[in-house]
Amino acid sequence: MEQEFVKPTEAQLKARRKRSVAIALALIAFVIVVYVGSLAKFGPALFDRAM
């Protein structure tokens, strides 16, 4: 199968970089929301479990 490389333009690379940063920030924010939210919802009981 004949293949060839596609070279993204500078604008496409820049946009992709920005999207990657935004996705990373959104993921970090989501993890923090779930972690902190769980602590707030369950309180100290969250850690009260059999080892």
């Binding site: 004949e2 293949q3 060839e4 596609v6 993204p8 333009t9 920005k18 999207r19």
Partner: peptide, 25 residues
């Protein structure tokens, strides 16, 4: 750098996005 089949390149839907996070917002 993206590696694609030539067949795929001929499809009308093929494109490299220039969308920024602002567009999604």
């Amino acid at each position: 750098m993206a590696l694609v089949d030539q067949e795929h390149m001929k499809e009308a839907g093929y494109r490299l996005s220039e969308a920024t996070p602002g567009d999604f917002i």
